[in-house]
C-alpha cells in the first residue's frame, strides 16, 4: 500500500484526501514531508498541492457533512499526530457515507480517533489563552514566546486581537518558528526569525516582580498541593511562565 507524502499544509492534506478519494486508493499513511521516514518497503506517492482540489474537498465537507466536521478535521490536523492524516481520511469516508449524523457515532473508531485529537487541541488552546505571558518590549510591542505541544498558536489570534485591541502584540511559537502578529487593525501569521536581542521596556521587570510577589502571597500555605498544581498546568509549559521561574 502506498504512502502519501504532502507538503505539510492543510491544503496539501486536503489534496491528498481528494486524490485518495477519486483514485479509489487506500493509502497506508498520509504524512507531511517533514515527518516522513523512508524505508525500502514503502511505495511513495508525492502529492502536488492543488488549491482547486482542496477547495472541492472543503466545499463537499460543508455541504455533505457539516461545519462541525470541518473544524474537527482542522483541529485534528493541528494536533500533528503521526496518524492524523489517515484518521482524517477514514473519518471523511465514513462521513460522506453517513452525512450530518456522523458525529453521533461516538463509539466508532473512525469518529473517536478524531474526537480524541480534537479534545487535546481544544484543551491546549484554552489553556494557552490563559497562560501565555506578554512581555512589554522597548519598542512598545507586547511579546509572548510559547512552545505548545500541538500547533495551537494560530488559533489564538482572534481571541487576543479582540481582547487586546489597542496594543501591538506578537505571539511567537518558538518550536515552529512562526507567530501571530497584531497591529491594532488586524491579525495575521508570519514566519519569525529573531536576530537582534530582545530588550525589555524600562517598566517591564517592575511588573514581573509585582506579579511574582502576588503569586507567592496568594498561595495558602496550609493547603500546599503541588500535584494538583501540575495537573492543571503541566510542567512542559513552565518555561515561559514568569511566576514559575
Amino acid at each position: 500500500m502506498p504512502c502519501y507524502i504532502y507538503d505539510g499544509s492543510f491544503d496539501g492534506l486536503l489534496t491528498a484526501i481528494y486524490d485518495a478519494y477519486y483514485n479509489k486508493d487506500f493509502p497506508e499513511q498520509i504524512v507531511s514531508r517533514d515527518n516522513f521516514i523512508d524505508n525500502f518497503l514503502i511505495t511513495k506517492v508525492y502529492i502536488q498541492t492543488d488549491e482547486e482540489k482542496s477547495k472541492k474537498v472543503h466545499d463537499a465537507i460543508l455541504q455533505k457533512i457539516s461545519r462541525h466536521a470541518m473544524s474537527g478535521i482542522m483541529y485534528a490536523y493541528l494536533s500533528e499526530h503521526e496518524n492524523a492524516g489517515i484518521y482524517i481520511l477514514e473519518y471523511l469516508r465514513f462521513g460522506f457515507k453517513t452525512g450530518r449524523i456522523v458525529d453521533s457515532y461516538l463509539a466508532d473508531d473512525r469518529v473517536n480517533n478524531i474526537n480524541r485529537l480534537v479534545t487535546k487541541v481544544t484543551r491546549e488552546k484554552h489553556l494557552l489563552s490563559g497562560i501565555i505571558r506578554f512581555r512589554l518590549l522597548q519598542n512598545n510591542i507586547y511579546y509572548a514566546p510559547i512552545e505548545p505541544q500541538y500547533n495551537t498558536t494560530c488559533l489564538l489570534g482572534k481571541h487576543f486581537a479582540e481582547r487586546m485591541s489597542d496594543q501591538i502584540f506578537v505571539i511567537h511559537d518558538v518550536k515552529r518558528s512562526y507567530g501571530v502578529f497584531y497591529d491594532k487593525n488586524k491579525w495575521f501569521m508570519s514566519d519569525i526569525s529573531i536576530k537582534e536581542d530582545i530588550v525589555f521596556h524600562e517598566n517591564e521587570l517592575f511588573y514581573q516582580e509585582l506579579w511574582k510577589h502576588y503569586f507567592d502571597y496568594t498561595t495558602i500555605k496550609s493547603r500546599i498541593n503541588p500535584k494538583l498544581q501540575s495537573n492543571h498546568m503541566p510542567k512542559r509549559y513552565w518555561k515561559y511562565l514568569i511566576e514559575m521561574k
Binding site: S129, G130, I131, F215, K221, R223, N225, L228, M233, E243
Partner: peptide, 12 residues
C-alpha cells in the same frame, strides 16, 4: 479563563 495555578492547586 484560568491564568495560573498556585502551589496549593487553586487557580488564579
Amino acid at each position: 479563563i484560568c491564568h495560573s495555578w498556585t502551589p496549593d492547586g487553586r487557580c488564579i
